[in-house]
């Protein structure tokens, strides 16, 4: 697939929390770009700033300095309303702990995502694809972790977002389920051509990515383009 250069630009991002003695710099001049349709993994240990960076890319948090640009549109220039529209039109989110709406069924949780799009994917078909059709009338607390995460992915991709942000999507899952989920994300990336940015501390996952950004202490340590990526099913850790 032809990748568009500089689809997402992360430019000199600085972010700190607290003030005075308790001030802690989480991101210190982060700089990299992601091409359209690229599977990008942000890899790093705890405290490296990867989740903070993902939140800033998602417009949930804002940088103290630097900017994030999508198609050249800088997030820092957007007001709250524009940011909402940005998330609505361009982003899909997958969290480590799924963050499903507990009082909605599987189908309804996915429809929550569909509602935001003018041209959503077909819900029933997606449920089949996700292997959730049988469970579509269940509430999240009636599902296993893997099923919940699949629902979360369904909710994120049903609106066919430009960018799929995944924050440790396998962090709460066992090995086999994690591989299933990674495979699903890979399939989504390949089938729909979404740009995937995945935060993880699992080094094995970088093997299935087009692009790995290794982070430590709020800085990019390595920016690696993977020419020999493997399928999620081949991963092992």
């Amino acid at each position: 697939m032809q990748k568009e250069q500089h689809f997402l630009e992360v430019h000199q991002i600085y972010k700190a929390y607290g003030s005075g003695d308790s001030r802690q710099e989480v991101l210190r001049g982060m700089d990299f770009t992601v091409a359209k349709g690229e599977f990008c993994v942000l890899l790093g240990p705890s405290g490296s700033g990867k989740s903070t960076l993902l939140n800033i890319i998602g417009g949930i948090d804002c940088a103290d300095d630097g900017y994030i640009a999508i198609h050249g549109d800088k997030l820092k220039d957007m007001d709250e309303k524009a940011l909402t529209m940005y998330r609505r039109k361009h982003l899909g989110y997958v969290f480590q702990l799924y963050n499903l709406i507990p009082n909605l069924t599987v189908k309804e949780n996915i429809e929550v995502g569909a509602y935001l799009s003018d041209h959503p994917l077909e819900t029933e078909e997606l449920l089949q694809t996700l292997g959730l059709y049988e469970h579509r009338h269940k509430l999240p607390n009636q599902l296993s972790g893997g099923q919940q995460q699949r629902t979360s992915i369904g909710r994120a991709i049903i609106k066919n977002p430009d960018i799929l942000l995944c924050d440790e999507p396998t962090g709460a899952l066992d090995y086999n389920t994690s591989k299933e989920i990674l495979k699903l994300i890979e399939e989504v990336n390949q089938k729909y051509g979404n740009t995937v940015i995945m935060v993880t501390h699992n080094e094995a996952i970088q093997q299935m990515a087009d692009h790995t950004v290794k982070l430590r202490d709020g800085q990019v340590r390595k920016n690696i383009m993977n020419e020999n990526k493997i399928s999620a099913t081949e991963l092992d850790w």
Binding site: I60, T84, M85, R87, R88, K89, Y93, N99, P102, V112
Partner: peptide
């Protein structure tokens, strides 16, 4: 839940 739907892009 409210925060989540905000993240998803609900106004």
């Amino acid at each position: 839940s409210i925060s989540m739907v905000k993240v998803l892009g609900y106004t």
